[in-house]
């Protein structure tokens, strides 16, 4: 009786294992050695020398530069008021009033570069920019 029970159990176990093996092989991918390319590519950026800032804005020319987005001018108008109140002899130029025909930076890289050249012509000691969005 025990012997028959054992043989039945063994047969059943073998049968169940036979059912499971195909299922296991479907879910098991083969691991392999891969050689792959890094798709990022190297970066090419020329370092830019950034200029030292003045120790004070007293007596200096400050240009306020607006990128044309909503409220950027309102933000800078308030900055202009506070500069006038708190900084002695500061000269404030609002770029959008000096160059009303100039579009904001959203019109592209070339337009931004042209605008920068125009601002440089005002000979500012500092440019404060608003990138509103």
């Amino acid at each position: 009786m025990n012997d028959r029970w054992c043989k039945s159990f063994l047969a059943c176990a073998i049968f169940m294992a036979g059912l499971a093996v195909p299922a296991l092989s479907y879910s098991k991918e083969s691991a392999q050695e891969w050689e792959l390319l890094n798709p990022e590519g190297v970066i090419q950026v020329k370092p830019m020398k950034v200029n030292p800032h003045p120790a004070t804005l007293e007596g200096k020319t400050v240009v306020l530069r607006w990128n044309g987005k909503h409220n950027g001018n309102n933000f800078l108008n308030r900055v202009a008021e506070l500069l006038a109140e708190q900084v002695k002899d500061v000269k404030i130029i609002k770029a959008w009033e000096a160059f009303p025909e100039t579009p904001g930076s959203s019109s592209g890289a070339a337009a931004s570069k042209d605008f920068a050249q125009k601002l440089a012509g005002l000979k500012p000691d500092m440019v404060i920019a608003s990138q509103a969005d």
Partner: peptide
């Protein structure tokens, strides 16, 4: 405006663009 000083963050040195970097991986 008045107290900023440049930091010490270095711009990465340029590596050759070609050939693209390769790496190996063992897996599925």
């Amino acid at each position: 405006a008045t107290q900023w000083k440049p930091g010490t963050t270095a711009v990465r040195a340029a590596k050759a663009a070609y050939p693209a970097e390769r790496f190996t991986l063992r897996g599925t």
